Amino acid sequence: MRRKFWRAIAGAILGVALTLSWLPRASAQDDPLPSWNDTSTKQAIVDFVRRATTSGSSQYVPPAARIATFDNDGTLWVEQPMYVQLVFALERVKALAPLHPEWRYTEPFQSVLEGDMKALAGFSERSLLDLIMQTHAGMTTDEFSKIVMDWLGSARDPRFRRPYTDLVYQPMLELLSYLRANGFKTFIVSGGGVEFMRPWTDKVYGVPPDQVVGSSIKTKFEMRDGIPTLFRLPELNFIDDKAGKPVGINEAVGRRPIAAFGNSDGDLEMLQWTTISDGLRFGAIVHHTDAVREYAYDRQSHFGHLDVALDAAATNRWTVIDMKKDWKVIFPFDTR
């Protein structure tokens, strides 16, 4: 009886062991970037994180210094056929036009109302900034946040017929999570409006409002019916683009990042500021090369123009993320 008993116990233990051998390995060994192909690009990212987090290594970076910055348009979500915030601004022009009859004879508002996108594309950056300021001001910050969220809830991209918040890049979502799981603090540093992004970046990217750096218009404090408010003015406060990005990072973050991710010449200075320094550094450029699943563009594009930064990548040893080669999927809905 005893022999049969112990044989039964031994058989049960063996069965459990065999069962466990077929189970998935511990989560620490799971692929942290499943939507990335197994290319040198993915390996470079994983190697960087390993070096930064290996205690005792000469390249170890303390958690407090593990700062990673990400551009938004074209790096985390789509920017073609035009920036999402510009689409929002154009629709605001049409919505506000009855209150501004002078816009029918004033550029660039006239071209927007007439649907002349070719003329609009030829306007200066300053003209487009004026358009954005005029359509984003004249309300409190809370009112503006609600307008943004209501618009994002109803607007649809013309090509993919989906909400713009669906058109975020799944591989970059994984990268954000991977970095945070390894003690990094992730920041969005964008030329887009900071108050256009802050209402939704936490839900979409896991990046809270206080870790979003962007362009801004001026606001002023007012008491309205006994309620303290911040009122948005049609005056430029700060442009967080090109050389403005390192300035914005310094003012809002207070530390030089050790990793930066961008996709255009507007990110050149952020990449330089991050990588041309002592210690472990990582810079990467998302190169849009997939016309089938997303878009293919670089040097000749009006939006997301990538020319000087692409040439600088080789000199500065920045990783160029080839969307077509390096990503298994583009959007989260591709994984369903």
Rank of each mutant, 00 (worst) to 15 (best):
G283F: 02
R255P: 02
G262D: 01
A291H: 07
E235V: 13
T229A: 12
P228C: 01
A260R: 04
T274Q: 02
P209H: 08
T274A: 07
P208W: 02
G226P: 04
P228I: 00
D290P: 14
T289Q: 12
V247W: 05
H287C: 03
P257R: 04
R293S: 09
Y297M: 12
G214K: 00
N250E: 08
D267R: 02
G206D: 12
G254L: 00
P208H: 05
H288W: 14
L230H: 13
R293V: 01
K218D: 07
I276E: 13
V207E: 15
P209W: 09
I227N: 14
L310D: 03
H305I: 00
I285Q: 01
N237F: 08
L271C: 01
D267G: 09
F282G: 04
I276W: 02
I285A: 05
S215R: 00
A291S: 13
F261K: 05
I276K: 13
T219P: 07
M223D: 09
D278L: 05
P234C: 06
G266H: 09
I276G: 03
P234F: 10
R232F: 06
A291V: 03
P234H: 05
H305K: 15
A296H: 08
E222N: 11
A309G: 11
V253Q: 00
G262Y: 02
P209R: 08
V207M: 13
A291L: 05
K242S: 11
V207Q: 14
G248F: 00
V213H: 06
D240G: 06
G304P: 11
D298K: 12
A252M: 09
N237S: 10
P209S: 12
R255Q: 15
A291Y: 05
D225L: 13
G226F: 09
G206E: 10
R299W: 09
P228H: 08
L310T: 00
D265F: 07
I239H: 05
E269Y: 10
P209Q: 07
T229C: 13
V204K: 06
Q300F: 11
N263M: 06
K220I: 14
F231P: 01
S301C: 05
F238C: 02
